[in-house]
Design a protein around this nucleic acid. Structure first.
Lengths: 254, 254
DNA sequence: CGCATCCTTGATGTCAATCAATCTTAGTGG
DNA sequence: CCACTAAGATTGATTGACATCAAGGATGCG
């Protein structure tokens, strides 16, 4: 199956707030900035639990995951990162990173050193607002994720995951309906707090119902409305309520 | 059953970073500060989803919960707040609050207006560091919570919840082994993503095993080690592994 | 090619949600 | 003060969603 789709997670003119800030406020030291760029490969770690905090990283290309480790050595993925995302904010507290960040593919990052952050915060109101808003936004996302983990069924979790990914790619100027998953099924399962077999089964179920088309890492969303419905009302369990409730589109349908 | 225990969640000389910051950096406008204090009662809302963001609140006494609402009207509690906690950081993004904060008992809060925040950030490095660290710490807590919701069994969730509460009260100068729960069973269940009946059953089970003593809102932890073990290795399901793994105490035992 | 990683699919077991009934506590008004 | 009500909490019985166990197929790299 050779479908034409865009290469994923390439460098793009990152329109993230933080990125804009740096460019706007510090046009002079672009050379210095470029020096702080670094390239990593799949399975490389950007930093690990306990590592000294140097500053915030901005992901320029590729993708990554962050996870923390429980006492018994189990890992739990808390977030996937895509170009433009800030990575490593968790390190301000105690100057140590609380989780590990590992790349899912060849990626490049740019470091904003802590000293830079402090000076930018005081000198640039754009940067300050950007940082506060980014953090604030992250907190809101975390809340949504907690709700998802705590109350959604496996099918709802996966539907939400796909819709979120879709939005994520759309925001980055890529197709929101056809993309490559840069993470394994194991990663997805871990992230959503379910068994890998369940992920597989629900993907199969979605495919059978013509909601998605999935072939290993390649994924295409065929029926956004169905996914949306699935998040609002679990398809399998309560078919009776699906008629009484109007479909509320949380996500734009492309 | 009339046991002597401290009144909970009273005003205390809040030692939170943010609090210290304000006092240290703005000793002049204490009068003004006091004007921004407000008192609320049980079931009152500090703000609701969509409300305009005015600034960050610091909880001075009492307790509160924050929750967001899904499309079908279901609520999900994302956090409980105790004196010294910052409330409302989620509002920076878009100047609107993304969740509702509601009080669990009579409480008082102090507002740090957005304009104040901006000026404090630029003028006071103590405040700046405090804010960044507090946010960073919150992110780390969120990660831990996600891990809990995603991978822990109900018993582990509840054990962790109790231990976290214990630490929370200890940090605030109250007893970490004997305290009042200011939230209902329903709130606890909602927060941990489980059924209220399960909460009740596990409380009963803990009590039977002499791990805790619980009488409605009153709770006393008798066996910290057991709770710790429970978090590390689920007591019921895998008794065979409990011998091979040494007990690693995440929480200090009081 | 051969090995390791990743993914899929079926059979079985179990944890916890749900349903249902009862009891307790707290709040209200006569 | 006590009846009355509503909210909160407990306990038991049943069911279902999902994890686990087990086996096999696909993919990709050295």
């Amino acid at each position: 199956m050779k479908t034409s789709y865009q290469a994923q997670n390439d460098y793009y003119n990152a329109a993230s707030q933080i990125d804009i800030c740096i460019v706007n406020t510090n046009p002079s030291n672009n050379a210095q900035k470029r020096n702080s760029h670094r390239v990593f490969h799949r399975r490389d770690s950007l930093f690990s639990v306990g590592d000294h905090f140097e500053g915030i990283y901005v992901l320029r290309s590729g993708s990554a995951k962050s996870f923390n480790t429980s006492r018994d050595g189990e890992e739990h993925i808390t977030k996937f990162y895509y170009p433009g995302d800030m990575v490593g904010i968790d390190g301000f507290h105690g100057h140590k990173h609380k989780q590990t960040v590992r790349f899912l593919e060849t990626s490049s990052v740019c470091l904003i050193k802590e000293s830079e952050i402090h000076s930018l915060i005081t000198t640039s109101s754009v940067f300050r607002d950007g940082l506060l808003q980014a953090m604030s936004h992250t907190l809101a996302c975390n809340s949504a994720m907690m709700m998802c983990l705590g109350t959604y069924s496996s099918e709802q979790k996966l539907a939400m995951f796909l819709l979120d990914l879709s939005v994520c790619f759309s925001e980055r100027g890529l197709s929101g309906s056809e993309f490559m998953l840069s993470m394994t099924r194991t990663d997805i399962a871990n992230y959503l707090g379910m068994a890998i077999e369940t992920v597989s089964r629900i993907f199969a179920s979605f495919q059978q119902r013509n909601i998605i088309e999935v072939q290993l890492r390649y994924l295409s969303i065929l029926d956004f409305a169905a996914l949306n419905r699935s998040v609002a009302i679990d398809i399998c369990t309560k078919p009776n309520t699906s008629l009484s409730n109007p479909i509320q589109a949380k996500y734009a349908m492309n």
